[in-house]
Design a protein around this nucleic acid. Structure first.
Lengths: 131, 131
DNA sequence: CCTAGACCCTACAGCAACTGGAAGGTCAAT
DNA sequence: ATTGACCTTCCAGTTGCTGTAGGGTCTAGG
């Protein structure tokens, strides 16, 4: 199967697929006589895996670990459990940070008239010389 | 005032301050006879502003806009209001995405035994060939 | 006076995770 | 024979810094 078909199947961009190959994340696909990449079912399964893992917010390096765990019949599910637990904690921390940003910005929005006058609580807050 | 003092005052890294200068984000500080940067109160206020705006998650380009609005006595607070409203919407979208990731991962975590066996619902989910 | 250590300077390389573009080869249809 | 849609490689750019190399300057101590 050629790259654009794999791309539309997996939802990855052809560019992204080549990129994953270039950084050694996935196995090399075969090549046709004309040099075009020819993806096997196994190649495509790996790309699906990456698509999903990336959607869950795992970094490329974490994807590398996950792929290795997937490939390893001796894997301990505890290893996966830990990796994912840490990821969930990361996400939680991230959500907390975003909520705090949102909270402060929303409070400031209420105080900003949003009209033709230059006075603005947001600008004043940003310009203050303190934490 | 020299750069390291400004850095510890504003909480920005000296490298970051030079970087902001290099991309034309802030006014150029004076230089001492030895070539060292010499920051004025005005320079420092700009850096405080950037520190705050970055903490609120504004991109460098948005910071550029905000700095321009701050400097403009003719500004309309409506412009600031709109920029910040969009930012809050971005944050909201981001939070929603993260919550969805977290939800699915948490559900999978419950199904992953986290022991010595290789069976793992998370790996299975990632390996599935569907959305 | 010399030296060590803490500053400061510039300039370039690299990070994540792609994305875009240039320049060219291939293939199917008209 | 030519068009247009593919495919290839390689290199540059994105965001927002951070690290490193290679150097100059300043201050304190011996």
């Amino acid at each position: 199967m050629k790259i654009s078909e794999v791309a539309s199947k997996t939802g990855l961009d052809a560019k992204t697929i080549r990129y994953y190959e270039s950084i050694g994340l996935v196995e090399l696909p075969d090549r046709l006589d004309n040099g075009y990449r020819d993806y096997s079912e196994q190649n495509i399964r790996q790309l699906w895996f990456l698509r999903h893992a990336r959607q869950f917010g795992f970094s490329i390096d974490q994807c590398r670990e996950l792929l290795a765990l997937w490939a390893d019949p001796q894997r301990r599910s505890a290893a996966v459990h830990q990796l994912v637990t840490e990821k969930v904690q990361d996400i939680d921390r991230h959500i907390r940070e975003l909520k705090e940003m949102k909270k402060v910005l929303s409070e400031l929005l209420v105080e900003c008239p949003g009209n033709d006058s230059p006075h603005c609580a947001i600008i004043n807050k940003l310009a203050s010389d303190s934490e």
